[in-house]
Simulated scan of single mutants.
Amino acid sequence: MATSAAAAAAALAGCSSEATPARRRTAPGSVSAETALRRRSTAVSAALLLRYDAVLKAHPELAPRLAPLRAVVARHVEALAPVAAPGATSPKASEPPSPGASATNAASEPHAPADADADADADADAAAAAAAAAVRGLAAAERSTADAHTAALVGAPPEYARLLASVAAAGAVHAYLLTKGARS
């Protein structure tokens, strides 16, 4: 009986010592799974970045309010990207479009002198409404992006999960700042 107990103990010890290194090794598919997750997460944030660029291009007057949030999203795109091989350079998020690059000035169109004030007021109201709608759209995109990053936490390795959680939290704060935070 002592012999069988010793044999069982040796077998268990052998299993545990062999199993521990195997757990530490990365499974062949997990590296590519993490890379795929990083690519998806980067694409989600990159789409948000493009949305910021489009709003800033259409409404350059929003630059003081949106540029800091856009800069954070650009850093998120870089942080979420798959890890580059040694010596490779990672793509940088594009610079924001210059505020006046393609902005059209509707007020510069000629008007009859009697209608100038009414047209200017109508143009200003329409522009303000369009800008407000664009900001609401950005807030919705921030919430959607934060939700996508939160959903991705399930399959993420611990270190990347912490990054995704931080980026999702930042997105939630951005959505707040674009909506309720603007009213304060």
Rank of each mutant, 00 (worst) to 15 (best):
E18V: 14
A79S: 10
A63K: 06
P64G: 04
E159G: 11
G100K: 02
A107Y: 09
L138W: 11
A156Q: 08
S30N: 06
T20Q: 14
L12E: 06
T179M: 03
G171D: 00
S41H: 06
K92R: 15
S144T: 13
A141L: 03
S144V: 01
A27F: 11
A127Y: 00
A126W: 03
S98I: 07
A8G: 00
D115A: 15
S16C: 13
S4K: 14
S144Y: 00
A43F: 00
A131P: 05
S16K: 11
E95H: 07
A134I: 06
L50D: 15
P64E: 03
R183H: 09
P113S: 10
K92I: 05
L49I: 02
R70L: 06
L164Q: 08
V72M: 12
A6H: 09
E159A: 15
G137V: 06
A106M: 05
P99S: 02
R38H: 04
A93K: 02
A85G: 06
P64H: 05
A81W: 04
A36F: 09
K57R: 14
A151R: 11
R183S: 09
L138E: 12
A79W: 07
H111S: 15
S41M: 09
Y176D: 11
S45Q: 12
R24A: 12
A129F: 00
H174C: 04
T179F: 04
A170R: 10
G181Y: 01
A43N: 08
G181M: 00
R24M: 10
R39K: 10
D121E: 15
A13D: 11
L69D: 07
N105Q: 08
